[in-house]
Amino acid sequence: MFPIIAKEELGPSVFRLRVRAPLIAAKAQPGQFLIVVLDEKGERVPFTLSDWDAEGGTVDFVFLVVGPTTEKMARLQVGDTIAHCVGPLGRPSHVDTFGHVVCLVSGYGIAAMVPVLRALKGKDNQITTIVQAPDKKRLFGLEALKEWSDKVLVATSDNGNGKGPLASDQLRHLLAEHPNQPIHRVVAMCSLCLMWVVTELTRPLRIPTFLHMTPIMVDGTGMCGACRLQVEGTNRFACVHGPEFDGHKIGSWDVLLARRCSYADENVLQQSYSCRTCSQW
């Protein structure tokens, strides 16, 4: 059993849980995830680790309430337990000294990117973070982004006149200055359609673009193949080969978008955090 040590409501329907899971905390790396099973009848749900304390033996993750499982999870309180947690799964995000790194985040990615930002900062990168949210009310975690970024650009629909820029608009402005103000790498942890847009924007400029893919998973250890995607024409599993992939090598985006939504009718109750340009969240 995995006891909940702390719980915080970050915004409407956005929560952070801190769970005691020493085995996961001991090996966690930026960009990795854990799988949570709430109770013996629960489903296996992956969440990117948003923080951990190897010595204290705790891990943090952030979730949006989108379906029955996350709704149930939102009702848990400090002292309650989660039946199963397994991780850290997936490969760590590739971190090195790249130069100027532009990071794009939305939804759960706003919190999940923080360990990656921290690691990138630790390697002396210059970081510009673009954060997208439906509106200011549902923008959370800005402080942590600011702490580890040199510059944070906010993309919400209510930037003054109700028609704020999209994250892709913000990225376009930055790319327009490239290569005079060079961008050496783009890392995105946001809605799938935004990641697709980002990939197509950077492709002609050949800026390395790495995406944290979040397809539907079942076991999370390479067993079921639910999370497969086409990378350079071959099957890759997000859970064991990813979740970070070179965006320019990913194929069949239309299938990925459809797959991400394939269980939406069964399991998604509300989509208030959905992407502003499609129905993704």
């Binding site: 079921c224 193949g225 099957n235």
Partner: peptide
């Protein structure tokens, strides 16, 4: 083969 509603037997 990556189309939706194509499962591995394992899944």
């Amino acid at each position: 083969e990556d189309l939706n509603m194509v499962y591995s037997a394992n899944e």
